[in-house]
Simulated assay, not measured.
Amino acid sequence: MTLSELYDELAYVNHSREKRAYYAQLITNEPGLMELVLEILFMVDDTRSPKAGWIAEFATKEDITTILPHLELFTTKMHTVYQDAALRPVSKICEELAISYYKLKNPQTRASLARIQRERMVTAAFDWLITDQKVAVKAYSMTTLYHLGTEIDWVHRDLKRIMEDGYATGSAAFKARCRHVSSWISKRKKTKSR
């Protein structure tokens, strides 16, 4: 499938689980398509960018290895995405990568996700957390930063401060994620001090 054919196909994609699953399976069967999906995702002004994001997210959740060969492209361009419907899947992909790398210790993810790419994820997640974004983007960013902070010392300190600053004015969902992430940080701190 060419870029133009995939672009045309995206006209038929909606946010339904069925459509996302269909295209995610297509990528799983033909992993080379992920690069094309990402190219469309990074056409940030295009109405099909969010649709490409939905597919990239779903494929990554189904099989993390589909995005691993494209981490340089993904991490160098993720900060350019600004449409709410496209930014949510980008932040979710970051969360999936962080969980795979730090919590699940997936050997393929650990071999693929370079230090500079993890640092780009830190920068993007903090940017999303301190700017006016939807709660899902902020929630995924908090989880991403928690995991990245298990390696990069200063991240937890700054994350806690930002969560505390935003707590009073945050939505119920934001506050709930803050409580979860704060408890993870506290438990980690206690474990490290033993």
Rank of each mutant, 00 (worst) to 15 (best):
Y22V: 10
Y23L: 15
A24L: 13
A24Q: 02
Q25D: 13
Q25G: 12
Q25V: 08
Q25A: 05
Q25Y: 05
I27H: 02
P31W: 06
G32R: 15
V37I: 15
E39P: 01
F42I: 11
M43P: 00
M43L: 12
V44F: 00
V44E: 00
D45F: 01
D46H: 10
T47V: 08
S49M: 02
S49Y: 00
P50N: 07
K51R: 14
K51I: 06
I55V: 15
A56Y: 01
F58K: 04
F58E: 11
F58H: 15
F58T: 09
A59G: 04
T60C: 13
E62P: 00
D63Y: 09
T65Q: 09
T66E: 10
H70Q: 15
F74M: 11
F74W: 03
T75Y: 02
T75W: 03
K77F: 05
K77W: 02
M78I: 03
M78F: 05
H79D: 11
H79M: 10
H79T: 10
T80K: 11
Y82T: 11
D84S: 14
L87Q: 08
R88W: 12
R88V: 14
P89F: 13
V90L: 11
V90F: 07
V90W: 01
S91Y: 05
S91Q: 06
S91T: 15
I93G: 03
I93T: 06
I93K: 05
I93N: 02
I93Y: 08
C94V: 05
C94W: 00
E95D: 09
E96T: 09
L97N: 00
